[in-house]
Design a protein around this nucleic acid. Structure first.
Lengths: 225, 225
DNA sequence: ACCTGAACACCGTTCAAGT
DNA sequence: ACCTGAACACCGTTCAAGT
């Protein structure tokens, strides 16, 4: 796809896609701890082929997460033309939270790996980009407080996804409920207390990635070196 | 301690404590993926002794988490007499978030294991208990909205801890900032929109524990059986 | 009654041998 | 060029043998 990439042999290209499909299916069925052996088997290839396509299991997970983030960015772009900027922002957040419920394991991955992988960082920048535009529109419309940034909102959303979604199977209303609480937190309100600190930026995210090179991996890897 | 427990031989008692100390130190230094071999070595005992005291590595982690939660409950109790109920509640939350920054790995554990372990569930009930009292006082004082429960607040706090703390090393103000946002979310405000759903209860938590017996473990275990 | 470390089962990852 | 599966390193856990 990307111009920089070499053309793959036909069977290699097919194997790559098969691995992604198999992993996607197994991960959302049974979580991130399904073995690579089973993924390779379901894809109809040898274990070695998996590691030829994805240097590590984490990279395989990252590839799927990047896909999902790209889809989110697309949905966000279409909302940029919506008539009500405030609702557009909250629709965007609700859509992400909704998808997260479908395949929980995948979004859990982003929690830890968030910045470990270059491609994830790039995709993340895309998400922050659209979110920033949606947020700016909502702020101009007076629906959202001025002293908040896209990274703030993303962090709040991640909190809702990770925490509330654990209960979504029991009470489907928990996620909507906590999206309402997010809304209360970011709502434009003259009586609101000012926030301490500054809105985190994308550069702060990069710095975290550099400072924590050996953060706890998603799946415990053998070679800690 | 507990009446139901048998008296241990002197050396066994000492080994138990040594294992807890060693694990505590190593986990907060290098995260939860330090090997059991190293923990046993630092404690000066054989690997087998570790598993005699704690049936699995997860149980060892759980034991430490339970300790921490007990400490939180104690701190919460002392705040029950504070003059300003609203501030008492937010002090309690800030203290928990503060400790979480010290040994991040440990609180991360609660994220996944939260309800897997019986003792953690019991300790969790304790935390929800004090938090409920602090919350009720704050609500009576008109500092916090009425349509919110202790579990709601705990979920919001977990979101702040898990998400914001990742950035705390870069910008120490991120956690206070997001505690301010939590405050804005739960603040008593006549103009606030009502929340969807109902406040989750402790019984909902139990039900999640039953419904998800094979949730992704903290550390990938060998025997999935 | 408790401790020990060699042995086991199960991962992710590599690599020599194939096509 | 790409694929394969046996082999490897590294975990958590068990258990026969010790004291």
């Amino acid at each position: 796809m990307t111009p920089g990439e070499r053309a793959l042999r036909a069977d290699a290209e097919r194997n790559h896609q098969r691995l992604l499909d198999a992993a996607e299916a197994l991960f959302s069925e049974r979580g991130l701890d399904v073995g690579v052996a089973e993924i390779a088997e379901r894809a109809g290839v040898g274990r070695g082929t998996l590691f030829r396509n994805f240097p590590s299991k984490e990279d395989l997970i990252a590839a799927i997460v990047v896909e999902r983030m790209g889809e989110a960015v697309e949905r966000g772009r279409t909302l940029l033309d919506a008539s009500d900027p405030g609702e557009a922002l909250f629709d965007f957040l609700a859509q992400i939270a909704g998808r997260q419920q479908l395949d929980r394991a995948l979004f859990d991955a982003v929690a830890d790996t968030w910045l470990a992988n270059d491609e994830i960082r790039a995709a993340d920048a895309g998400v922050v980009g659209v979110l920033g535009k949606l947020l700016a529109r909502a702020q101009e419309a007076g629906a959202v407080r001025q002293d908040i940034g896209a990274m703030d909102v993303l962090m709040l959303l991640k909190g809702v996804c990770e925490t509330a979604s654990a209960f979504a199977h029991i009470d489907p209303q928990v996620v909507p409920r906590h999206l309402d609480l997010l809304r209360a937190a970011v709502r434009a309100d003259p009586a609101a207390q000012p926030l301490r600190g500054r809105a985190p930026t994308l550069e702060d995210v990069e710095r975290v990635a550099v400072k924590q090179p050996n953060a706890a991996p998603v799946v415990s890897s053998a070679s800690t070196a």
